Computed example of a mutant assay.
Amino acid sequence: MKKPRITYFLISVITLTVFLAFGSYGVVLAQEETTEEAPPPEEIKLSTTYPVLRGPSGTTFEFKVEASYRGEGERTFDLSAKAPEGWYASIQPAYEQTEIAAVRMRPFSPESLKIVLIPLKNMSPGEYVATLEISSGDLRDSIDLKAVITATYELALGTSTGRLNTSVTAGEDNHFALILANQGSDAIENISFSSDKPEGWSITFKPDKVESLEAGKTQEVDLTINPPGKTIAGDYAVTVKVTSDNASDDLELRITVLTPSLWGWVGVGIVLIVVGGLAVVFVRLGRR
């Protein structure tokens, strides 16, 4: 009679153990199912794949930035950009040319933006950082965008005398000396010359091309001006231009045309003035 009692006791212990184990687990599951998770806090985030761009002086830098908003409803965010000194920053939609100052966003729907950095003058080589900011109430974020100027390219065209006017004789070759200077930080290649001139005039350059000009160096250029022989005497404007792959300059000259006959009259006038002056001197000396 003792064996059935032992068996009954063991069965009872096992049953109670199983009940306690699975019963407590079920209670935990029920508690977990009834617990509600708190919604994540609202957030605005700016990000970019390429925060640093490089280019020579005069380059316009375009940064692509993505704005991501996490929240409960639509919201309008203000946009602003702090540009380095001497630069202009423009905030635009990624695929439009319209400048914007705010953007309306839906939760979990990213907006693609474009920040265009434009140098207002030739910038020295170096790093220039702009900051894009987005905000709405207590939500805000910012991102730094860096433009790296690798070199400056600047050509300056002038004259050997510093004067921007000269006199020429119609129907003849008249020479005028120009000075081309590389005021950049790197060599400038493939330099060529051209001009805007009155109809029928001949304007030539020697040399007419410069293969390469090192930084800080100058090149003298002989400008030959030949107005047609029938050109009416007077003042004319001639613009000479220098261009390369990454720099250019121009110079406006005032050209005074004297016809050969006019030169003759000028010579006669000079002779008469000299003779008249000598006559006056002799008369005064004779009276003494």
Rank of each mutant, 00 (worst) to 15 (best):
I44E: 11
Y25S: 01
E33A: 09
F19Q: 07
Q31E: 11
Q31W: 13
E37I: 09
V18F: 03
T35M: 10
A21S: 08
Q31S: 15
S47C: 07
S47A: 12
V52D: 05
V18R: 03
E42S: 14
T35W: 07
E42R: 13
L20I: 06
E36Q: 11
G23F: 01
E37F: 08
E43L: 14
F19N: 07
P51C: 14
L20W: 03
E42D: 12
E42F: 02
G26N: 04
L20Y: 02
T48Y: 07
P41C: 02
L46H: 10
E42M: 11
T34G: 01
G26V: 00
Q31V: 13
S24Y: 08
A21E: 06
L29W: 00
Y50W: 14
G26S: 05
T49Q: 14
E43Q: 14
V27L: 14
A30W: 05
V18G: 02
F19C: 10
P51H: 14
T49W: 09
G23R: 00
A21M: 11
F22S: 05
E43R: 14
V28K: 09
E32Y: 02
L20K: 00
P39W: 06
L29A: 00
P41V: 08
A38E: 15
S47G: 10
V28W: 15
T48W: 09
K45E: 12
E32L: 07
T34S: 06
F19W: 06
E37V: 10
Y25C: 01
A30K: 04
T17K: 07
E32C: 03
G26P: 02
L20Q: 03
A30R: 05
F19G: 08
Y25L: 03
E33R: 08
Y50K: 15
S47L: 14
E43V: 13
T48M: 11
E32Q: 10
E33N: 08
P40T: 11
A30V: 01
Q31G: 09
S47P: 08
E43S: 15
T49G: 11
E37M: 13
F22A: 03
Y25M: 01
F22V: 05
L20M: 08
E37Q: 13
T49V: 08
T35A: 15
I44M: 14
A38H: 06
L20D: 03
L46Y: 11
T48C: 08
V27K: 10
F19M: 12
T48S: 15
A38M: 11
T34F: 04
Y50H: 15
G26L: 03
L46K: 09
T34N: 06
S24E: 02
T17M: 13
G23D: 03
G26F: 00
E33W: 06
V27N: 09
S24M: 05
F22C: 04
V28C: 02
S24N: 04
L20H: 00
Q31N: 15
I44L: 15
Y25R: 00
S24D: 00
E43M: 14
F19T: 13
T35G: 05
